[in-house]
Design a protein around this nucleic acid. Structure first.
Lengths: 205, 205, 205, 205
DNA sequence: CATGAATGAGGATTCATTCAT
DNA sequence: CATGAATGAATCCTCATTCAT
């Protein structure tokens, strides 16, 4: 390992420390309390050091959001839905997503609530790109397949995929903001909500 | 018109200017960017003037929210649902609410996204009180009635009322954020969304 | 009574209201909390009214101080010291003064502590004029008389008059700042202090 | 001298500049006029700089007082009173204290007159804790010893220790406020005052 | 690479005061 | 006579950021 490589690794390490500290502050105290000073003091470096690793504060927040997003994208992309019952499969898809977000509700909430300019384009907030977002397209494909297989009552699959997701977002928003800590109750609620949302779609109900 | 009356009107006028300026800042830049200085500079007065009209910053924000919510409350309270088909009635209830909010989507968006402490008590945000909110209770009552009348499939009416509203909020959030201006398209989407959401509930579908 | 006279009386009345309100605020909340607005709201007039009766804030404070001073001067001037024992007489002189000040310790304290420019010249704080102040001269006269009468051990009466008063002031300062509310204890302490201070002066001790 | 050391010295220098500027403002204009802006403008730096050296305004004031009081405490603690005449010893104790304070009368005056919350705990102001202060206790001990040795007329030693110090404070206050610059005259006055105060206490007078 | 020094802009309030009405 | 409107200066403090070292 050359010296340059070692330096790169070292650099990456500090970058991650900054990232982590910032993330923790957001979770624990909220985005509005995030400050460069606070990050610096948390990692025991001077505030100015941070500017060697990130352009500015927004850059840090963006990186937090991107990490979050990419994890969600990755998990969702690699999700295996193998149940023989397709209704179960699609419900699991939604539940997986909901659970992913609710793993770190405070972070999501903090970012969601702060209208941060730099994050607006992301795939996971409810912006105008929503309709064209990957997750909607994927869901539409599934609905199309179910339709073909005669499982679904006749609907506009694209629209219903879209509706499904924005409803899910409504549920998530509410859960995130209500800050309910009771895991068991929450899981039951998730199940019931997905049932509620999907009920009318499948023929055999 | 006496001098006192004229003064009162003048006072009201400036109060409204402040209100409007603050509202615009919230809409355009987000709540976190709202400052007394900014309001003052927008209305071309000194910052201290504002304190002649409002107690403090919170007071301004509260007044914005109250204006908004009182209109919604009033309209919803006086809503007449006379259709012979109860499914239509409940759909109209949701549609009315959606339309009310989408009248000033940016304002709603700004306030919705900011979870402002002072506004927490209100009946129309989606905080933890959501489940106990007036509109959910009212909807539960309707669902109960439909259930009695044999119109509804057997569900937990309270839970479904709650789910209905958080789904609606998901839809509204998306509409608000997507900023779609095409009224006709929007109305069709609203119809379809409410159909989607309500479909599974009623027996005869 | 002419209209002008009535006006004058009315004017005087409001002036006194302002004076009283200001005094109360100083006593209850301290000089640093005194503000024109607070005075105005206490007397249920607008702040600007006050400027019809007093030049400015300093003017009000000055008038409070002057009232206090003139009362002290008046009482001290008219004090009758008739006891057959001259030591008792001089002690009563000191005690009267101490009690006068301690009647409104908070007011005294507030003014004493605030280094108010306008009051600096007064006869009753411990400024450079102290040595030439009326009360010292009077006390010297008494000491001279006692000396003549053979009651006093041989001292520089002027200096001892001066010393007496600055000691008294030390005592008062301490009492005022210590804010002791126990009247009985306080009276005993005053007695004892004056004893302590005077003890060495008189021959027969 | 390493770079770190030089930096430290530089830092200390500015800290002292701030300290000094604040002290001067307090002396010249009074504590109530002390402001961060004023300090900053006096040392030709921006107000925010000050927060790199002191936590806040209170921190500055505290440091001024601590510097002052620690010197006094140190000198008084190490004072050797070896005279064969105990009356002389106790007089010297008082005189030393008086002289220490009168070394920087304006600063003492400013602080003394302002009863600053942050300073309340100190041993050298004349607040309610006065009676329990170290110097009073020490003086009581001395008086007790003199009493045992048959030097003192019979008195309540605690009370007289207390009275002694508040009288001394009265004297100091007066000297400080009168701003007399004539050292020789002042020294004579100090002698005479302590004589005056102590005279009645000792038996052989 | 890391940092300490420094700043300027901005945050909410408070207040005495003036002035036209 | 009384006041409401308006202001400008002041308060402490926080922060992101730059720059020389």
């Amino acid at each position: 390992m050359g010296i340059q490589e070692r330096r790169k690794i070292e650099k990456e390490k500090i970058k991650k420390e900054i990232h982590k500290a910032a993330s923790e502050i957001i979770i624990e105290e909220g985005y509005s309390k995030l400050s460069i000073r606070k990050i610096a003091s948390k990692i025991d470096y001077s505030p100015s050091l941070i500017y060697n690793y990130y352009e500015n504060k927004a850059d840090i927040v963006l990186s937090i959001w991107q990490e979050k997003s990419s994890k969600i994208i990755h998990t969702m992309s690699n999700l295996k839905l193998n149940d023989s019952n397709e209704e179960t499969n699609i419900k699991n898809l939604f539940k997986t997503y909901i659970n992913l977000i609710l793993e770190s509700p405070k972070e999501y909430r903090a970012i969601m609530l702060n209208n941060i300019d730099i994050i607006k384009k992301s795939n996971f907030d409810f912006t105008e790109e929503e309709k064209n977002s990957l997750k909607i397209k994927e869901t539409k494909k599934k609905y199309d397949k179910y339709l073909e297989e005669g499982l679904l009552r006749h609907v506009d699959t694209e629209k219903y995929a879209f509706f499904s997701w924005i409803s899910i977002n409504g549920f998530i928003s509410n859960m995130v903001l209500s800050n309910n800590q009771d895991k068991e109750f929450l899981n039951k609620l998730i199940d019931e909500y997905v049932d509620f949302m999907i009920y009318g779609l499948f023929k055999n109900n």
